[in-house]
Design a protein around this nucleic acid. Structure first.
Length: 429
RNA sequence: GUGGCCGUAGUUCAACGGUAGAGCCCCAGAUUGUGAUUCUGGUUGUUGCGGGUUCGAAUCCCGUCGGUCACCCCA
């Protein structure tokens, strides 16, 4: 046993978990590219001031921050958006608008860890900058929906909860409430479903509102509200509006959202939000001290809650298992039945690998039975046996349990040909 | 940051003040050129770490590190 433990809140990825994670990455990347997004990446570490600028001093509670050897205040990134804003505003004239970028990578928050909440987690981020039309929000929501569908999570399993902060702005304006109360008010709305009504009432009183009038307003904010008209038209045309549910309680915690806000929720297990985002038109101006004023919108999806949902959703579980099998299996296992042929076998291993065939073999002398067992364990489709009959080589189909013999000189061609044939396995059950 | 529960072999767990054990995994053999099942044998521990109480501590107490749950927060 090692005397070392992992650092609090950090996790190992043994091959099985790593394969699961890679499957999630591959799916995110494939769908984002399908939508014409370009991949970018920022640094894992930024100046702590970058995050203070965006979110204020109190954010340092949750920041994984420390001093480096030169006493600079630096932080592991808690999210990618500030880095994105920094990168885009620094070179925005180099990029045609709209900028459609995505990123996949770890982020860090200094919190009390528990299941589904570690100090290191991975996020998929998609953002569109330089276009403020509702088409950008629609494109992002469509992307979020297609990502879920691609994972095998169906319309019965998830919903997009959609709102718009503007509707609350006009609500407060109509009630003659000062703009300074906006942040406090949104935090109350955010908790309105979880908190007891009396408490909410008590918190609303200083602002000059009653729970009844807030509830009445929320009930009136349905999909016919003009704030959602353009989005509704756009997503209906794509056949995606069915995934949307208007929910005025969605405000998102962060101060910087300006208009559309949305979250992705599962419908069957009561998990935390799978993804969340919205438009943040003022952030670039804030981060660049007004030099670059780019409208923007984006969302982030974490890997942890998503992973839990994939396990609990049969259709998604099947796709995941298939992908894991494909990632862990090899094409053929070379069996050295006669040690005198090992050097010939090694030459063949190298030749097969050179054309991209996935090959494994045993390093030392081992009984043939063990080697076949190893081939089985590695989920190989074929075993290639080098024995006393060399230069004849036996190719055995481990799924069909049939075998044939070929001259060693033709081995690569023959194996390539066999791999072209569809694999008919007992895995269908 | 606050409070509850937990930490024993690679892993899942048992032993709950008196000799640290079992299933699974792993390795080898039965089976000297073919995958399953079965059987046999084998390796593995400063009981997370440090201190205290006791004739004696995996067990009780304190501290610490890690996990987990509820707060907090959730970019």
């Amino acid at each position: 046993m090692s005397t070392f433990q992992t650092v609090k809140g950090f996790r190992d990825f043994f091959p099985e978990e790593c394969a699961r994670r890679n499957y999630i990455f591959d799916t995110w990347r494939a769908v984002a590219r399908r939508y014409g997004f370009m991949e970018y990446e920022g640094p894992l570490v930024e100046s702590t001031d970058l995050y203070r600028k965006k979110s204020g001093d109190e954010i340092t509670n949750q920041l994984y921050c420390f001093l480096d050897k030169a006493k600079r205040e630096i932080s592991l990134r808690p999210e990618i958006t500030p880095s994105l804003a920094r990168m885009v505003t620094a070179r925005q004239r180099d990029f045609k608008k709209p900028i459609k970028w995505f990123q996949i990578g770890p982020c860090f928050r200094y919190e009390e860890p528990q299941e589904g909440r570690s100090r290191e987690f991975i996020q998929f981020n998609a953002d569109i900058l330089g276009d403020s039309s509702p088409a950008t929000s629609a494109e992002l929501i469509a992307l979020a929906i297609d990502v879920m569908l691609e994972f095998g999570v169906s319309a019965d399993d998830f919903i997009i909860r959609l709102s718009n902060r503007e509707i609350w702005n006009t609500f407060l304006a109509d009630k003659n409430i000062a703009a300074e109360h906006m942040q406090t008010f949104l935090q109350i709305i955010d908790k309105i479903e979880r908190a007891r009504p009396e408490e909410t009432e008590k918190k609303l009183a200083p602002i000059g509102l009653t729970l009844a009038e807030v509830r009445a307003f929320m009930a009136a904010a349905d999909e016919n509200h003009p704030a959602f008209a353009a989005l509704r038209e756009n997503l209906t045309a794509r056949g995606l509006w069915q995934h949307i549910r208007i929910d005025a309680t969605i405000v998102r915690g962060l101060a910087y959202y300006t208009g559309t806000v949305f979250e992705v929720f599962d419908l069957k297990h009561g998990l935390r939000a799978l993804a969340g985002g919205g438009s943040y038109d003022k952030l670039c101006a804030l981060m660049s001290d007004g030099h670059v004023d780019l409208p923007a919108a984006g969302f982030a999806m974490g890997d942890v809650v998503l992973g839990i949902l994939l396990k609990k959703t049969p259709g998604a579980q099947m796709k995941l298992t298939e992908a894991l099998l494909a990632a862990s299996s090899i094409d053929a296992f070379v069996v050295v039945a006669d040690e005198a042929q090992r050097l010939h076998a090694l030459a063949a291993v190298q030749a097969l690998r050179a054309v991209g065939i996935r090959i494994d073999y045993s390093f030392g002398s081992q009984k043939v039975g063990k080697q076949f067992q190893a081939a089985e364990d590695r989920k190989a489709r074929f075993a290639i046996v080098f024995g006393a009959e060399y230069p004849e080589v036996v190719i055995k189909n481990l799924v069909a349990r049939s075998q044939s013999s070929v001259p060693a000189a033709n081995l690569v061609d023959e194996v390539q040909k066999l791999l072209q044939e569809p694999a008919i396995g007992p895995l269908i059950a």
